[in-house]
Design a binder for these strands. Sequence first.
DNA 1: CAATTCATAGAACTGATGTGCGAGGTGCCG
DNA 2: CGGCACCTCGCACATCAGTTCTATGAATTG
Lengths: 236, 236
Amino acid sequence: MITSDQQNPFEELSERQRNILLFIEKFSDQKGFPPTIREIGEACNIASTSVVNYNLNKLVEAGWLERTREKSRGIRLLRRRTGVPLIEQPVRAYEPANVALVPLVGRIVASEPVLLPGNDFGQYYDPDIDVIEVPRTMLRSLDPGEVFALKVQGESMIDALIDDGDIVILRKQQTCQDGDLVAVWLPDDSTTTLKEFHDEGTRIRLQPRNPNMKPIYVHPNNCQIQGKVLGVVRML
Amino acid sequence: MITSDQQNPFEELSERQRNILLFIEKFSDQKGFPPTIREIGEACNIASTSVVNYNLNKLVEAGWLERTREKSRGIRLLRRRTGVPLIEQPVRAYEPANVALVPLVGRIVASEPVLLPGNDFGQYYDPDIDVIEVPRTMLRSLDPGEVFALKVQGESMIDALIDDGDIVILRKQQTCQDGDLVAVWLPDDSTTTLKEFHDEGTRIRLQPRNPNMKPIYVHPNNCQIQGKVLGVVRML
DNA sequence: CAATTCATAGAACTGATGTGCGAGGTGCCG
DNA sequence: CGGCACCTCGCACATCAGTTCTATGAATTG
């Protein structure tokens, strides 16, 4: 089984799958919500709902759709035609619509460890949790489920060139390599901070990104990695 | 029966209706399709489906929604609360592909003024010019044509919390208001820099974003505003 | 006070809708 | 030929979900 290839071009899909995709797009534009399996079947001359279901899953594998299990019309287009009229960019019927929705799980308050959503199984985000749009290029082909975002509160991260209100995109992980910029929880200080990680054997050096500032050193036991920073987004 | 009043402002709706509207917007953004009546009810603490139905019809009358009878999730948002009307065509509430392509016009090299593309009429970007994908939320309903991006070279911006390699999203403009973070070209110094702009009458104070650093003062003649910073994106 | 309107609740009805299963067909390869 | 992967079909099932009807209380009106 080949794992999902997010780069699968439109032309490589079967004709049926192309039809389905085009219909979903048209239907959604017209009505404001995605079609049901049966509506797709009728429009694309597919006799059985299970066949539509089958092909929808294929399209998910190929990175064209997202589905929400057990929900009617639980279909979301991930890429579409160049919607924006402003650019006359010659045809190229579909452009990779590079937005992923990433849960904004909390804030770095420099007082308590980040609460990661219990998940893995959670494509369902709590509706109370905000999500933020992230250019997919920022995810480097990671599954959006591995990624989360944090809003920085306070100026404690200023030595990592991160300001109050910035949003940090991270990949969930408990380990990292030397030189990675990571979010670490320091139990002794009851602090979460963002620093460059350097393992020096007996101690860990946490190097600020700001050359004007000095590193801090911690004992390996006093250093829990929470995630690796993929990027920072600042909106003013 | 009162005919629908398309101008009904958000504040005149009942609290319940406002909640419903906000929930529909959030849900659609998150999932890619509108909620069902029951999902709305649960989220907004409404006990009965018929009450949701009732309020949905009110919202239709007030011009906020469109409904498709007998269709599950047959709801379409016609306006969004975000204030700016910006769009004449009905908003595609589900629209997941919220990326704008913004030209990456050059680099801040601290040596020459930014060359803005011949602009206004220039919807065609030079194919040599890179474009960068930006989440549309970052554009705040601006026309993508007004926006451009710069890649920062060197660490001359570190006092604005901007690192080498960061990408700055700007809106083209020659003036600004006090407190805006702007890119300014300083002819005397042959430098472009990003600072907070403060007009002090006889002089202009350019305040770094980093509280550890001191402002610089320039004569109004030695200060050309190139654009206002909308955001910063850092990919690691 | 009675009549009316508005907002809400609960329940029942019925068609819509996603899922799962068994089966068949086709082409490819050893 | 046998085995296998891939795609298709038909169908059954258990919910899901929009609609509708009745009822209740509060506020408004005459």
